[in-house]
């Protein structure tokens, strides 16, 4: 029989309400509170332990709480980790999220929680764990636990392709193809959708356009003539020996290259390693992607304060969003240390 562990807060453990919210993490062998119901519903595993932690404690000592719980779990064998249900309780929801994230990272097991749609934990963690669509109050406990158990049972049975809609968990931002049971050819779906759209009736698009996640516009540069400006590119401009071994497609690596004392990028010293386009032009004159020559001129003329001594490179083609984000975050750390004021990014 496979084994499961459940995380709950002090309230559902029966320790107490708000006054006991500083309750420090504790792992108890056996079933406490909602663990009884979970153990009953779960077919493919038994719940062996219950983790209990006060919402305030984890809220104000998150790292410490997570650390202690992970340490406590080290000696315990388990195949899946549950947390909640957290209903609409915000602190409880994010506690479930943080602990599931850490458990998944450390032990590599699937994690399942349950929250109400308005619980802020949903937005924070839906991409990282299975969060069953739960009720808003504890009266829905039994129903919510049933959903968690169903998802858990399927994961334990080795099914990882669970459809969000069918299993009633929040979409994790993972889109794959599938064959509906009543297969209807695309041509019929398209014409039916068009007829509805023409008639002003409701229809359901099969590709909901994600709300573009805009970032706040950064404050503008006040005085360009005093600003230190860095250049970045996704066109793969590197020294000819490609010292960082940046891949020519689906890149996971980036590099920074010192241009101190250069008034332009010399062909034969720098080149592009990008596989997505004809490299002839950029190899012959790398400034068409990294315009060091004109930036130096603007620096001399005093239009800008300074061209920062390193430029940053990677390759954009086929690179996943997750990798691009990680690389950018790493570059940002470096630029902050270098006290860069503003950035020009050339994308191919």
């Amino acid at each position: 029989m496979k084994k499961a562990v459940l995380y709950i807060n002090q309230f559902f453990a029966g320790v107490g309400g708000e006054t006991e919210a500083d309750f420090e993490p504790e792992i108890r062998e056996g079933l406490v509170g909602p663990a009884l119901e979970l153990d009953k519903q779960l077919q493919n595993a038994e719940v062996t332990h219950t983790v209990i932690c006060g919402d305030n404690f984890i809220g104000s000592n998150q790292e410490e709480a997570v650390k202690r719980i992970l340490e406590g779990l080290e000696g315990i064998e388990f195949d899946i980790f549950f947390a909640g249900p957290a209903f609409q309780a915000g602190r409880y929801g994010s506690a479930c999220g943080f602990i599931c994230r850490a458990v998944r990272e450390k032990f590599g097991v699937e994690t399942v929680s349950s929250m109400h749609v308005e619980n802020p934990g949903v937005l924070m963690f839906k991409k990282e764990l299975y969060i069953a669509e739960g009720g808003h109050i504890a009266a829905k406990m039994r129903k919510d636990i049933k959903k968690m158990a169903n998802i858990g049972d399927k994961l334990l049975a080795g099914e990882t392709m669970l459809r969000a809609e069918a299993e009633e968990f929040f979409p994790r931002g993972i889109r794959h193809q599938f064959w509906p049971e009543e297969a209807k050819p695309a041509a019929i779906r398209a014409v039916e959708m068009l007829k509805k759209k023409l008639a002003g009736e409701e229809y359901q698009t099969e590709l909901p356009i994600p709300k573009s996640d805009r970032v706040e516009i950064a404050k503008p540069v006040v005085d360009l003539s005093k600003a230190r400006i860095a250049l970045m590119n996704t066109g793969g401009i590197v020294p000819v020996d490609n010292p960082d071994k940046i891949q020519s497609a689906s890149a996971t690596r980036w590099g920074k290259y010192d241009i101190s004392g250069m008034d332009h990028l010399e062909s034969g010293v720098f080149k592009t390693i990008h596989a997505g386009f004809d490299p002839a032009a950029a190899d012959a004159d790398p400034n068409v992607i990294m315009p060091i020559d004109v930036m130096r001129a603007f620096e001399k003329e005093g239009k800008i304060g300074e061209l920062y001594k390193d430029f940053y490179s990677t390759v954009g083609t086929g690179t996943t969003e997750a990798e691009a984000r990680r690389m950018a975050q790493e570059i940002v750390v470096h630029m902050k240390e270098a006290q860069v004021d503003a950035v020009l990014m050339v994308s191919t």
Partner: peptide, 12 residues
């Protein structure tokens, strides 16, 4: 995409 596809895309 010319119209036979019995497949669609969904969230997992």
């Amino acid at each position: 995409v010319s119209g036979w596809s019995p497949k669609t895309m969904t969230e997992f």
